[in-house]
Nucleic acid binder design. Structure first.
Lengths: 121, 121
DNA sequence: CTGTATCCTTGGCGATACTG
DNA sequence: CAGTATCGCCAAGGATACAG
């Protein structure tokens, strides 16, 4: 069930093919979180550093959501001070091709725009 | 330049690899619009029908934005009543692999969750 | 270090009515 | 048919402070 609130449809082009997956990777930071986790597991503050500018509140929110969806694993190390390792679950790794495709297109668009700027100006 | 508002960072994990592309396909309806345009060109009301539930205001907004970004082409036919054809530009077609990857992952996740529901319950 | 708690702003989107 | 115009909601996210 995709997010509904009262009778207000929040998100859902449910009948369209993309809704489900996008509700996972659709946040402002989420895809980048997945991206950084895809190459290696990271600790909370490492992610916070990777995603410079994210507030701890939001990072926690995103990670909790991803954890609940079974996309990331959270592993608390019994150290002091505590360290927590986040990593992509097997399910989470399914998202990699999509993320990679987005990244690839992003790079391509950037190149095209740069070329246009040079040629056009 | 990715959307900033005053000193408030709205969207931008700019330094991360995904920001640029996601700002294009990141809306609630946008990826589906691109999806429907990817197989064939569509008229305004056809899209409105495909994306059942979208308001004309939002559809116009999205299409205008995509047009400005050079993702879609808008072609007004000199008929009465007017008909307008939207299609993906060459640039827009670059987005297809990303959208397709998202769709593919979406389907896969659905299957996995379905299987889990059957096995687990 | 890894988070919670609070408060606030904002832009995306819905609903509806109207126009050329 | 293909849009504009208005109004208003609200959840995502920012800033900051605090806690185990």
């Amino acid at each position: 069930m995709i997010a509904r609130r009262k009778n207000r449809v929040v998100n859902p082009p449910e009948h369209c093919p993309l809704g489900q997956c996008l509700s996972i990777i659709g946040g402002a930071w989420t895809p980048n979180i997945i991206w950084y986790l895809s190459s290696q597991s990271r600790r909370f503050s490492e992610l916070k550093d990777d995603l410079q500018g994210i507030s701890p509140k939001v990072l926690t929110q995103r990670l909790r959501k991803l954890e609940n969806e079974g996309i990331v694993n959270r592993k608390v190390m019994p150290t002091s001070p505590p360290t927590v390792e986040y990593s992509l679950s097997e399910l989470g790794k399914e998202l990699k091709p999509a993320i990679e495709a987005i990244v690839a297109v992003g790079e391509k668009l950037k190149k095209i725009k740069t070329a246009e700027a040079i040629l056009g100006a």
